[in-house]
Amino acid sequence: MAKVVIEALVARFPGDVYDPYEGAGGDDCAFVQKSKIVEVCRFLKTDPAMAFNMAPYITAVDYLGAEPRFEVVYNLLSTAHNHRIRLRVKVPEADLELESVTTVWRGANWFERYCLDMYGISFRNHPDPRRLFMYDEFVGHPLRKDYPLRGRQPLVPEREVKDIFRGPGPVGRD
């Protein structure tokens, strides 16, 4: 099963893939160094013995109080071999930027936007680095553990909308 994958990863990227363990329910997991995640993912996708052709879920966790504080979790799937592994990347609060894996799996796009929106973790070379659920003027990242549960954000003024009938024109044309 997927234990072979983790062993191969540790052998190929010594030091960069570390602390492999078997999670609850027999999931195979490992930690990956932040700077190597794209390299590891590309190897997993292109190597025919691995063939991880899908990234079903990428998410982030805020371990407030721990150091490093954040973690990005990559759940990967190979439909050809029916393997699943989970890679965890520790992200310190001081350097909240990772390389985007959208170059490996295009489906990672919205998952990374979600991490940006909810945790403030940004991704280099992301094709569309916007917030996913919240509006642009929203202050803060709601799923961080120190985000207050109560309170309101002020209403924001309406955005300038281009004239959808006549296309973009000079400001104040109407």
Binding site: G23, A24, G25, D27, P56, Y57, T59, V73, N75, R86
Partner: peptide
């Protein structure tokens, strides 16, 4: 601990991390 569990929902894989 932490776990990722997945089931086949009507539209596809429903996962909970």
């Amino acid at each position: 601990g932490e776990v990722y569990s997945y089931t086949e929902a009507a539209n596809g894989e429903l996962g909970f991390y």
